[in-house]
Every structure is written in C-alpha cells, then in structure tokens.
Computed example of a mutant assay.
Amino acid sequence: MPPFFRGLLLGLSLIVAIGPQNAFVLRAGLTRQRALLSALACALCDTALIAAGVLGVGGLLARSPGLVLAGTLGGAAFLTWYGLRALRSAWVGGGPGLEATGEAPLTARQVIGTAVGFSLLNPHALLDTVVLIGGASAGLGTGARLAFLGGTVLASWLWFFALALAGRTLAPLMARPQAWRVLDTLIGVTLLLTAAGLLLGLRGQ
C-alpha cells in the first residue's frame, strides 16, 4: 500500500476512537458555538504533533521520564477538571437551554485554549500522534515519510471537520434537555476514565 494511504488509514484508526478531542468538537458542533474554530484548532494541534513524531521527536520525549511524568499529571488534572464540568452540566441541564443555566458562550480564545489543552495536555493524544505515528514512519525514506505524513494529517483534518459539521446536522435531534444530559454524562465519564487510566499507568511504571 502506498505510504500516503497507509498514513491515512492509520490516522483514521487512531483518531476515530472516542476521546477528549472528539467529545469537545462534537459538543461545539451540537451547540453551534464556534464549531469550525474548535475543529481547526484541534486539527492544527494534531498536525504539529504528527509532524513532530514523523520528524523523530517522539523518541526524544520517550527518553525523558521527567517530561512524561509532568505531562501525565498535568493531563490527568486537566481532564478531571473538564470531566467534572461536563457532569455538572449534565446535572443542572445543558444543550439549547445553556442560557437558562447561566453558562455564557465560549469566546474564541476559550475555544482555542480548550482545544490546545485537550491536544497537548492529553498523553493519550501525544502517544497516538507523536510516538505511534512517528514509530510507524521510522523505516520510510524521505519521500515516503512525507507522503505518510500527508496521509495522517489529512485524516485528522477530515475527521475533525466532519465531526463539527455532523454536530450541526444532529443539533435538531438534541433539542430535548434529556438528550443533552445523556451526552454530557457520557463526555464526563469518558474524560474521567481517561484521567484515571493515566494515573493508573503511572502506578504501573
């Protein structure tokens, strides 16, 4: 299989799994709060991380236990905070009734900051983009490596923007407050489980 399509398939297989970035972009699409900006921010972060992995930075980070520990603790704290926030939203009610709960729409700066946090403070995302994708490209020549890089980056961009647009399409189906409670509960549980997995991983080291 040509390197470009290998990268495309690998990128899709890693990014499609439910995770913090996907949950964030999907919710932005459903609430129609700067959905395309959230998708753009996540895609740009993934592009930078994938490029770093393909260019060999992943191996350097893997040999720095201090950086790995700091990143894991910071990522677990960030995911825990956002997960609890999602569960609180599920408890008080969310979705189209956000204004009724007193939650103001996110500003562009807040959207970008949150997307960067989910991308750079989530060791699972770093593992997928920097280490796994970087390792998969290690045996390729320069031209093939660039093609592989292009395929994985394209997968990221296609997925995030498709998710944002899908959220807008599904918004009418989410008119019921109960549906939003279920979605926010799933998002909160996903984020908390991710954070717990990071901390348990530290205990096993």
Rank of each mutant, 00 (worst) to 15 (best):
P3N: 07
P3G: 12
P3S: 12
P3M: 10
F5C: 01
G7V: 00
G7K: 00
L9K: 12
L9M: 12
L10G: 06
G11P: 05
G11C: 08
G11E: 07
G11D: 07
S13R: 05
L14Y: 00
I15R: 09
I15V: 15
V16E: 02
A17S: 14
G19A: 04
P20V: 07
P20G: 11
A23T: 02
A23I: 01
F24H: 00
F24W: 02
F24M: 02
V25Y: 15
V25H: 12
L26W: 03
R27F: 14
R27D: 06
R27E: 14
A28R: 13
A28N: 09
A28Y: 07
A28E: 04
G29I: 06
L30D: 03
L30R: 00
T31F: 05
T31L: 14
R32H: 12
Q33C: 13
Q33P: 11
Q33D: 15
R34W: 07
R34L: 10
R34K: 11
L36C: 12
L37Y: 13
L37R: 10
S38A: 15
A39S: 11
A39I: 04
L40N: 10
L40D: 10
C42N: 07
A43H: 03
L44M: 08
C45D: 10
T47I: 06
T47L: 14
A48V: 09
A48I: 05
L49A: 11
I50E: 09
I50F: 15
I50C: 13
I50N: 11
A51Y: 08
A51S: 12
G53F: 06
G53A: 06
V54E: 11
V54K: 08
V54N: 09
L55N: 07
G56H: 09
V57S: 05
V57G: 01
V57Y: 06
G58C: 05
G59Y: 14
G59V: 14
G59A: 11
L61Q: 00
A62C: 14
A62Y: 14
S64M: 12
L67M: 14
V68Q: 15
V68R: 15
V68Y: 15
V68C: 13
